[in-house]
Amino acid sequence: MESANDSKISKRTVFVTVGTTLFDALVKAVDTPEVKQELYAKGYTHLLIQIGRGSYIPARSTGDDRSLAVEYFTFSSSIAESLSSASLVISHAGSGSIFETLRQHKPLIVVVNEDLMDNHQEELAEELAERRHLFCAHPQTLYQTIASMNLDSLLPYPAGDAKPVAMLINKFLGFPVD
Rank of each mutant, 00 (worst) to 15 (best):
F15K: 02
F15M: 08
F15E: 01
V16W: 07
T17N: 08
T17R: 08
T20H: 08
L22C: 02
F23Q: 08
F23V: 06
F23P: 08
D24A: 14
A25P: 03
A25L: 05
A25W: 01
A25Q: 13
L26W: 08
L26M: 06
V27C: 06
V27G: 06
V27H: 13
K28T: 06
K28A: 07
K28N: 05
A29D: 10
A29E: 02
A29H: 04
V30K: 14
V30D: 12
V30Y: 06
D31I: 03
D31V: 06
D31C: 04
T32D: 13
T32K: 12
T32S: 15
P33N: 13
E34M: 05
E34R: 07
E34D: 14
V35K: 13
V35E: 10
Q37F: 01
E38Q: 14
E38C: 11
L39V: 05
L39D: 08
Y40T: 04
Y40A: 12
A41C: 04
K42F: 07
G43M: 08
G43L: 09
Y44H: 13
Y44P: 03
Y44C: 02
T45Y: 13
T45R: 14
T45K: 13
T45I: 11
H46A: 05
H46T: 11
I49A: 00
I49F: 01
Q50L: 05
I51E: 00
G52T: 01
G52P: 03
G54W: 00
S55Q: 15
S55G: 15
Y56A: 01
I57E: 12
A59F: 03
R60H: 09
R60V: 12
T62G: 15
T62W: 08
T62H: 11
G63D: 11
